[in-house]
Design a protein around this nucleic acid. Structure first.
Lengths: 202, 202, 202, 202
DNA sequence: CATGAATGAGCTTTCATTCAT
DNA sequence: GATGAATGAAAGCTCATTCAT
């Protein structure tokens, strides 16, 4: 029995502790290779007891994804609300997403990407609806920048390039190294709107 | 029994057909959810016969990864050899990697990313050594561009941003749509060296 | 939570409502496929609360059987007491047993037959002792008829043929159809003492 | 590992031995209380091996029922074909059914009645279609007798009374006692067409 | 090399029963 | 008495792997 690290947006109820443990295990071993016994062991209960909280193993996976989308959608909203200028909104979004991916919700965010296929079709549709809300926040800001002429590509394609850049960080970014989340965010913003300092130099 | 699409770099031997089928199934259903019976059925043999060609199921996964890395490392070498100027070499690399991911070796490339965790530690190390060769080709070209002052970030970080952008395409890019591999490659190159040069050229 | 139909011989106490619900569920789904949660849900309590009334699930089954035997043994006694002539006593017994099986105690009577095996050896012995009393009432009447020469077979064998005929009715008899319990009882009595007497009476 | 008694109509293949063992266990302990491990143990294989022969446990139950219906339908056909006079055909049918129930196919016949509910709706329908063929053989003979005026009740009701009488025998009939299958069959035939000797005496 | 029956460990899930509140 | 979370021992079923033919 190991102590599960708390995951932001998940409280200390039995259900919350179960979700934390599941997120961590699903990320580390994958959904299929993680057994309900594994999850139960981390939380310190018997495997049968899990089914008082979730009807199936898949429901645990869905709950992990649902909660992390909700939590980070709110984070995105707050990030946008705190800034006026589109380029600063973009920077806030990138920082928020990076924090989600390599920071407080990293386990669940990784699971969201890597274990997507393990949801059945119905649950995928349901989760997709939630992701659409999240994505729309990005698209709105990118559309503003596009209108301002800050980049040429279609906003929805630019979003996909950004998704790739931020999403891949869970495979390499280490906050303890020299590069900070803020530094990395600036780097990514530069990929979208060009290197500001260059402009400043021009 | 379905006819497995040929995968570039894999010949028509029984072993080759097995790898093709495995790559496709591993991508579509995931390594864990794919049974050796599934693979055997596609090739038209019995499940027991698979073990005359591969000692374990994991060995099949490893072979898929190994072959696709080898094949695409050669593709990268050819791409670099065909160009002189660093920026054109970069463009050639991006095109080559995009072709690998969304084109002829898409199944195996996706598997390389999504099922990495299913290899045991030893095999991961072994495969990593092969990937390092592949990655070094990228880093060399990026180092040249960096020396030329075409971007400011560390080359190895730039490579990771590119990896994210190209790697994610398997989730959205559809060659039948308006955007071509070449067009997308240009877009990505712009993210690295800025859009100015094009404007300047125009 | 559904309203359980009252079963004759079982009062409206919590225990009585539990037995009614159990009888119905055991008949409809079988003892093994009925969970204590099912029973609790029908009565409107939690599953844990059942064990304040019965020590085990099997005890519920036993109680259902015990009560229905008692109730119908009394019904048989009353039927015999109301008639003088052996053949009319037989008719009364058949009517009483049919009423038990397709009428007011049909659920519990069906359970008595179909779930007998689910009792452990001790409980089977105990229930058998009660059934013996019930059966003796039949055997006495049949012995009288046999002495009168109304049929040739051994009374205990004749009883078994009757048991088969009446017991099977729960699989087909539908009171709402043309055949009444009384009509069916006459038919069965004819199987025992022959159709001649009726003809003679006509 | 116990030796499973051979059941008529089931050969000595692995599948046949599995069905024999299952029929016996299902009768003795009931379908729900019999585990696939129980069945495997009797046959002397591992539990997992069962699923090479049957996809599910329920499929085993269905196969037991299907085979016993087929086998005994043929037995009924042969019985009818061997006699000309309706009353002798009836006697042959009763003997055949009694043999099925207390003789060579007793385990499976009992299972057919007692575990019917354990089949899902689809399989019940399928098995019912087979039973209808079996039942029609009975109804035809009974219709002939009815036309001859040998009994007054509707043939289909008479069949149900007979079903009850023969079906219940598995609970009490012991061939080693004084009453033989032939003797019991005569007794039952008398319940249908009246006691012949009485007529002879008249 | 191919077969396919068999293995056996391991999986998710169920459920009667317990017990602190 | 009632609650309902927790238990823990099964259950049915899956599947990579083996091996005699």
């Amino acid at each position: 029995m190991t102590q599960a690290r708390a995951v932001h947006g998940i409280d200390d109820s039995p259900r919350g502790r179960l979700l934390s443990a599941a997120a961590q295990l699903f990320r580390d071993k994958g959904y299929e290779r993680t057994t309900v016994r594994d999850i139960a062991a981390v939380v310190g209960i018997q495997s049968g007891s899990i089914f008082h909280h979730f009807k199936t193993k898949e429901e645990i996976l869905f709950a992990v994804m649902e909660e992390v989308i909700h939590f980070n959608t709110e984070r995105l909203r707050a990030a946008i609300a705190a800034e006026d200028r589109p380029v600063e909104r973009l920077r806030a979004l990138v920082r928020a997403e990076l924090t989600a991916i390599v920071g407080d919700t990293s386990e669940a965010m990784t699971v969201l990407v890597t274990e997507w296929r393990c949801l059945n079709a119905d649950k995928q549709r349901e989760a997709l609806a939630l992701r659409d809300i999240y994505e729309q926040l990005w698209l709105d800001v990118l559309a503003d920048l596009h209108k301002e002429g800050r980049f040429r590509a279609e906003p929805f394609i630019m979003r996909r390039l950004i998704t790739g850049m931020t999403g891949w960080t869970h495979n390499w970014f280490d906050q303890s190294r020299s590069l900070s989340v803020e530094g990395l965010a600036d780097l990514i913003v530069d990929r979208v709107v060009g290197e500001e300092s260059e402009e400043g130099a021009a």
